[in-house]
Design a protein around this nucleic acid. Structure first.
Lengths: 343, 343
DNA sequence: TTTAGCACTCACTTCGACTGAGTGCTAACA
DNA sequence: TGTTAGCACTCAGTCGAAGTGAGTGCTAAA
């Protein structure tokens, strides 16, 4: 597989770099002129014919230049590309982002995603942690008026859910505080997924007075577990896709955009990568979903306490600036993990 | 202005309806065939020439059918269109939306916006209330670990902000609760905009131990006030714009999408309407921003306690299905206001 | 093994002819 | 006097032929 001689490597790299830049099929003369490889266009032509033979390049039509195939991009990513180190500007922006006062995890990931989109000029996506692995931290009941209660549920890595209840009977002042305190004692440290059962037990022992409320809480927890399904995908920089010449075709674009609007499916795609470590690159046809067959996805998992809690990444055309993207996804997921560690 | 005879009104309505349907210039024969006005195409031709003369219609080129001008749409909206009453399906969906357990305001508006986009097939936008008019309800400090404190700020119509602090010195157990309780007593019912000053005064009277924390809280409040600037625009159904034939041109589309991505400017546009009551329609050139010159915006304000708290609306091409959109914006803003009232 | 030269390919552009939906005008009709 | 039928005219859009140029593969010479 890696049996390309140095000259072929140089040429494949040149073709790929050029195509990433220009989005135009790259001809032998262009390579000879633009990249000082010390060989003539005719030689390059021969080498390119070989590279096509072995599937790294292809021609969109007989008399056109070459374009890297998915296999070509794969080789480029695995062997040829050097992500390099973040530029000064990149480092500065990343540090700025994380030097802010700490925020609850959701906002933090949201901002990371925004920055990633801004730095790469592609679409940036992230899934925030599922509640599965998180533990109960705190529950607060706030009386809005005698019949309305705001419940705030805080789970482990700074995720906050809230919901308003209407109660049948008004609560006495101080009563909510008592209930909160009681529940907090009972629930502290439990896995979120175990909460329902404990509260159910609680319901059996409770006065009819608080039963309503507990049932409502049960619903909050169920919903907040389910809710993540809805909310856990974060997405930014969708605009950038319109700047890519491969998406001048509005129908192609619509396909991708509707996939993004259907958050759940994209979330699942990202979750497929959440078990692998390091930066993952999935190129074109390597993607299982047909909507992604002409796109590439660069992802990395971020961690907290040694466990992966979510995935962040970049979605763009297969003609993607892999070096830059890989470098940035790597850097941001790394820093994100570091910041989360300190929670 | 309203000096159109009945026949001209019928014709203008027919042309507008048809153009809204088909997005193709409407010819006199089409009108004669499709709408039973009891007159021949030649007569219609004469009337259309008159309507063009007075600026209600125009021809994209000499030998094409007519298209309503902005003035034509304006007349259509003001005089001709009948919003009708919501269909069964619409009513059902709206009731379903609001029959859910109550939620904090932000989620409520988010879901309304989603529904509006779904029902109209256009882009739907909303601004959620600024904090200016809202009052302090509750502040909760939760210790995540000895050095990290999660602060949750609840203000009046169910808006919840949260933030994590790192403190210089660890807090003793129970200390945070004491501070929360103290602040809650002091701050209850204050306008959020007055909070900063009050808290500042508070700092002077407090023990040096809590100074860190108070300063951090001050920052939370400042930020949550500022944060609304960033977050207060909600947007849904952007995809739909790609289904409109007028936005097959990718550059036009890009213009609109980048305006939407620049939330602040769109928020400002909506805020311009927030002082007027009832449904507002702003058509094409009537919009001040050049990006909106080919679009129409239908908005309504929603209320709580007699005060306007936000604006919700629909953004689409000037060739918009005004009747349906006006009806739905009206209905949803009305129901939204009702629900908020009960908070 | 590399390079220069040449014939060939094929997407893209340009241009003219053609088509058809739609108009304005005029004359006839009720 | 208002309405309609008929006709000449306009013009965007489509189709196809010709021309252009970037790029290739092959061959022969260095």
């Amino acid at each position: 597989m890696s049996n390309l001689n140095e000259r072929k490597k140089h040429i494949l790299r040149a073709v790929t770099d050029d195509y990433i830049d220009t989005a135009e099929p790259v001809g032998s003369r262009t390579i000879a002129r633009r990249y000082k490889l010390g060989i003539s266009s005719a030689t390059i032509r021969n080498e390119m014919a070989d590279l096509e033979e072995s599937g790294y390049l292809y021609q969109p039509h007989t008399s056109a230049g070459r374009i890297p195939s998915d296999k070509g991009y794969r080789y480029y990513v695995d062997v040829l590309v050097d992500p390099g180190i973040p530029t000064q500007d990149e480092t500065k922006k990343i540090n700025q982002l994380f030097s802010h006062q700490k925020e609850a995890m959701e906002k933090l990931v949201r901002r990371s995603t925004k920055l990633l989109a801004e730095l790469t000029d592609y679409i940036s996506v992230a899934v925030i942690p599922e509640h599965q692995n998180s533990t109960f931290r705190h529950l607060q009941l706030v009386s809005l008026d005698p019949y309305n209660v705001l419940a705030i549920l805080v789970v482990d890595p700074g995720i906050v859910e809230n919901k308003i209840f209407v109660t049948e009977k008004p609560f006495l002042p101080g009563e909510l505080e008592r209930i909160s305190a009681h529940l907090n004692k009972k629930l502290r440290g439990l896995k979120v997924e175990d909460l329902s059962r404990t509260i159910l037990a609680e319901i059996r022992d409770s006065s009819p007075m608080t039963r309503d409320l507990l049932e409502a809480l049960l619903e909050l927890i169920d919903e907040s577990l389910a809710d993540t399904d809805d909310e856990m995908l974060i997405c930014d920089g969708v605009i950038h896709i319109l700047d890519q010449p491969e998406f001048q075709d509005i129908d192609k674009t619509k396909l991708v955009l509707s996939m993004i609007e259907n958050r759940q499916s994209l979330a699942n795609i990202l979750l497929d990568f959440s078990s692998s470590s390091g930066v993952q690159v999935s190129i074109g046809e390597e993607n299982l979903r047909p909507e992604l067959k002409e796109m590439s996805l660069v992802t990395a998992t971020y961690y907290r306490g040694g466990h992966s809690v979510g995935t962040i990444g970049v979605l763009g055309p297969t003609r993607m600036s892999y070096g830059r993207v890989i470098r940035l996804v790597e850097e941001i997921s790394f820093v994100l993990s570091e910041v989360l560690e300190s929670f």
